[in-house]
């Protein structure tokens, strides 16, 4: 399969990228790591006139310590995220979820920002970003703005990003000392999640002091399991309380039906996997 023709632009600054996107209008696509876009172009499911490649924007790569948060450049590859010690120490949930993204080759090219902007409901990174209250730092023609993850994801493959916006950084509040787990359920290793659960907890003296739980592929966007979080906080870190909390995992979700799972099964999986994710995190 062969992509349709397009004009290729590889800007050397974010401003230049925004300008190029603005000039191209609706017909442009941003190329980050390309691990979803290039197959889509090959299949001719999309045929943009202009492709704006961000790979020359070295300022968009890397993980920086920013006090209470990490600032992760949108063009940081999954491989870099996996191996970054700041992520390991302060955003363990993200590191664990990134381990589950696609396969090693894809992780060498694919980027954190690209995965978030792609907003595949079955993708593994939106839910951890949501769980960790990440903030998207976006540069558009009107300048720079920040959008919390809870507002960033709008629908299937749709975010608040305008066609001429560039996601430049992701601010991830540190969860230092928290334990975490990403529980992914799929049919073969390289398949997308049927359902997955991102969980991070802070346990203090045997009690769950804080909890963050978000779900992958339980609706058009990642879903924060607020009910589960509420039910966990203040409870002892025991199987009984975890399971009681996990029973609320499907609340407020809108799972789809497809060849792998119907809505009923997805809801069931959400409950089971949430229990397992929290249990694993607590035990971690």
């Amino acid at each position: 399969m062969i992509p349709a023709e397009f004009e290729y632009v590889a800007p050397t600054s974010v401003e230049e990228a925004v300008r190029a996107l603005t000039e191209a209008g609706e017909d442009a696509k941003v190329l980050a790591g390309g691990q979803s876009l290039i197959p889509v172009l090959r299949m001719r499911l999309a045929a943009p006139n202009v492709v704006v490649d961000l790979s020359n924007l070295s300022e968009l790569t890397g993980v920086r310590d920013d006090g209470d948060s990490l600032l992760i450049g949108a063009m940081t590859t999954h491989y870099e995220v996996q191996r970054d010690h700041l992520v390991h120490d302060h955003a363990r949930l993200l590191a664990l979820a990134t381990d589950e993204v696609a396969d090693p080759q894809v992780r060498h090219r694919g980027t954190f920002g690209g995965a978030l902007a792609h907003a595949d409901p079955a993708g593994d990174l939106p839910a951890p970003a949501l769980a960790m209250d990440a903030t998207m730092i976006i540069v558009g023609p009107g300048g720079r703005r920040e959008v919390p993850a809870a507002e960033f994801f709008v629908d299937y493959f749709t975010t608040v990003l305008e066609p001429n916006d560039v996601l430049v950084d992701i601010r991830v509040p540190k969860l230092t000392g928290w334990s975490a787990h990403y529980e992914k359920f799929n049919r073969v290793a390289q398949a997308w999640s049927i359902v997955a659960v991102a969980a991070a907890v802070r346990v203090s003296d045997g009690t769950i002091a804080e909890a963050r739980v978000a779900l992958t592929n339980m609706g058009p966007t990642p879903v924060r399991a607020h009910g589960v979080e509420e039910a966990l906080v203040g409870q002892p870190a025991t199987a009984e309380s975890i399971n009681a909390a996990a029973a609320r995992a499907a609340e407020g979700t809108n799972p789809t039906t497809d060849g792998n799972a119907d809505a009923e099964f997805r809801s069931h999986l959400a409950r089971v996997l949430t229990g397992r994710a929290i249990t694993a995190a607590v035990g971690a």
Partner: peptide, 25 residues
Amino acid sequence: DTSNCGACTVHLDGHSVKSCSVFAV
């Protein structure tokens, strides 16, 4: 066509990539 099979794997700057999902440019 979808970068699943990995038959096209090469190394780019010392890291494995699927050369069907990288543009020559």
